[in-house]
Design a protein around this nucleic acid. Structure first.
Lengths: 134, 134
DNA sequence: CAACTGTTATACTATGTATATAACAGATAT
DNA sequence: ATATCTGTTATATACATAGTATAACAGTTG
């Protein structure tokens, strides 16, 4: 039931960010559902061979963004109420994030249709049932 | 004819990255066309009140990615042959970049149509004629 | 010759990433 | 109660990146 974490230590993307992204991807794929427990900072850190504080940093940020709840001495769980829905601030951030990405795609000759198709395919890859774990 | 540079020194996005993005956006909007000259590292740095090396860093990276050419003692110009078209490596990078963004948008309850509409609007805002300069 | 180009080198500060220990406080199981 | 688990906090260190500050070099152009 655990989410499989695959870190690329050669990447220039920080480890704690990779961790966040994989947990968020797990939620998007419904592999992680509201109320599901996540490993403790220590056990997860030991599992994937990184420092406790690196995991904690990812958890703290996921908590601040509403993806997870941290019960002081209970543990870490996916937000039982679900992830907070998009608000104006999120939409503004999303727009700012996409802006330069789309600018470059235009420079490199991608058509609007190509961009939309890639985006749509990525979206659907999250919502597809991928076999499941046996 | 110059591209207007607006830097946010409070942003956590590095200055040299902001600079790159705005130049790329200028190319996407056709405000900057193949062969157009860009300011020298010193004059641009002086104009926007940053260090010469910060501009140089942006220029070097834009050069490496094929957006501009740097003639040793002539100056900096938008690539006269146009920006290199999308190849496999670029498409892989684009996919990796979009992946976590779309994952979060799903978590936050955006429908596929909402994501595609926002993406499409952003795309078209680059290709629209925006009045021009007077 | 003077003034401009990009380039290179060095040095310094500040910040972010990641690690390594250590300890604290509350909950829980034995 | 004791041991063990939880998240949390506090230091300290190492390293890389971002940004600035000077300075100098080499070629071009006026």
């Amino acid at each position: 039931m655990d989410v499989y974490i695959n870190l690329d230590f050669e990447s220039n993307e920080p480890i704690y960010t990779q961790l966040m992204h994989q947990i968020i991807a797990g939620i998007a794929k419904k592999e992680l559902k509201p109320g599901d427990a996540l490993p403790s900072v220590r056990s997860l850190a030991a599992d994937i061979g990184i420092n406790l504080h690196t995991v904690n940093k990812a958890y703290q940020q996921l908590k601040q963004e509403g993806f997870i709840l941290i019960h002081r001495q209970k543990g870490v769980v996916i937000n039982p109420d679900g992830v907070p829905q998009a608000d104006d601030q999120y939409m503004n951030n999303l727009t700012s994030t996409l802006h330069p990405i789309i600018a470059e795609s235009i420079c490199r000759g991608l058509s609007k249709e190509q961009v939309l198709q890639l985006t749509g395919e990525l979206y659907e890859n999250f919502t597809k049932k991928e076999g499941g774990d046996k």
